[in-house]
Design a protein around this nucleic acid. Structure first.
Length: 227
DNA sequence: GAGCTCGCAGTGGG
DNA sequence: ACCCACTGCGAGCT
C-alpha cells in the first residue's frame, strides 16, 4: 500500500502512473479516501460487457426522487442489490434491493472488493451514466440506515469521469471557511475508490456533467447497511 | 496575441 | 439528491 500526503496541491494528483498501487489522499480535514486499480483492462472490459447485458435498471416511480416538494426523474439510471429485503431510502423514495444472484458477475466483483478491503458488504447501488449529460449532484451519503463507520467502496467501469469533493464548511453564500481545497479526481475503468469514515460526515461529493463525453459509465457502490 | 463570443462549468437557492 | 438562473471563464476563432 502506497500512501501520499498532499498538503497543498489542487487538485490532488495520483503519485504513481502504473495503476496497480493504492494511493491514499491526505487526512487533513477528516478526508480519508483511497484509490487504486482493481481489475486489469481485460477483466474490466469483460465485466463492463456483462453488466451492460445483464443489469436491469429501475424505471417509473423507482427512478424518481422528491426534491423541494417536486418529483423529478433522476439524471442517470440506478438499481440496488443486497441481502434479504434490504432497501435504500433517500430523497423521499425507497429503493428495494434485488438478490445478488440476479446478475452473475456481481458476486465476483463483490468478492474482489471484499478480499482487498477485508470488509463484508451487504448492499450494492449501481448507477449508470449513459453519457456526460448524466450526472450526480453534490451530496453526502448520510442515510440513517448506513453503518456510518464502514467504508463505501466505489467500483468504476466504462467511460472515465471526474469525481469531486468539497468540504461542508466551504459551501453556500455565507460559507464558514474558504481555505479547504476542492478535490477533483478521475475515476478510471476498473478502478476502486474507497471513502473511509468519517469522510462522509465532512465532505460532499459529486459526479459533475461533462458535456463532451459520449460513452456510458457504470458505477457500483458497495455499502454496509444496518440489518 | 488581443479581443470577442458562446457554450460550459460552477454555484446558490428553491 | 434535482432544476434553474446566474456568473465567470476559457477554447476557438478572427
Amino acid at each position: 500500500m502506497q500512501s501520499l500526503q498532499t498538503q497543498t496541491s489542487i487538485p490532488v494528483q495520483l503519485s504513481s502512473g502504473d495503476g496497480t498501487k493504492s494511493v491514499k489522499y491526505y487526512e487533513k480535514e477528516n478526508f480519508n479516501v483511497n484509490y487504486r486499480m482493481l481489475f486489469s483492462k481485460n477483466e474490466a472490459d469483460e465485466l463492463f460487457h456483462q453488466l451492460e447485458s445483464n443489469v436491469d435498471y429501475y424505471s417509473g416511480d423507482l427512478a424518481r426522487i422528491k426534491m423541494f416538494g417536486k418529483w423529478v426523474n433522476i439524471p442517470r439510471q440506478h438499481v440496488a442489490y443486497g441481502s434479504n429485503g434490504l432497501h435504500y431510502k433517500f430523497s423521499g423514495n425507497t429503493i428495494p434491493a434485488k438478490p445478488w444472484s440476479s446478475v452473475p458477475c456481481l458476486q465476483q466483483i463483490k468478492d474482489r472488493v471484499e478480499s482487498v478491503l477485508g470488509v463484508t458488504f451487504n448492499f450494492l447501488l449501481i448507477n449508470r451514466y449513459a453519457n456526460g449529460m448524466q450526472y450526480m449532484g453534490e451530496h453526502r451519503d448520510d442515510e440513517k440506515e448506513l453503518e456510518s463507520d464502514a467504508p463505501i467502496a466505489s467500483v468504476s467501469f466504462g467511460q472515465e469521469r471526474d469525481f469531486t469533493f468539497r468540504h461542508k464548511d466551504c459551501r453556500g453564500k455565507q460559507k464558514k471557511r474558504s481555505d479547504v481545497p476542492k478535490i477533483t479526481h478521475s475515476l478510471q475503468h476498473g478502478s476502486l475508490l474507497v471513502m473511509n469514515a468519517p469522510t462522509n460526515k465532512f465532505w460532499y461529493h459529486a459526479l459533475p456533467k461533462r458535456s463532451h463525453t459520449k460513452n456510458p459509465r457504470i458505477n457500483l457502490t458497495f455499502r454496509v447497511m444496518k440489518e
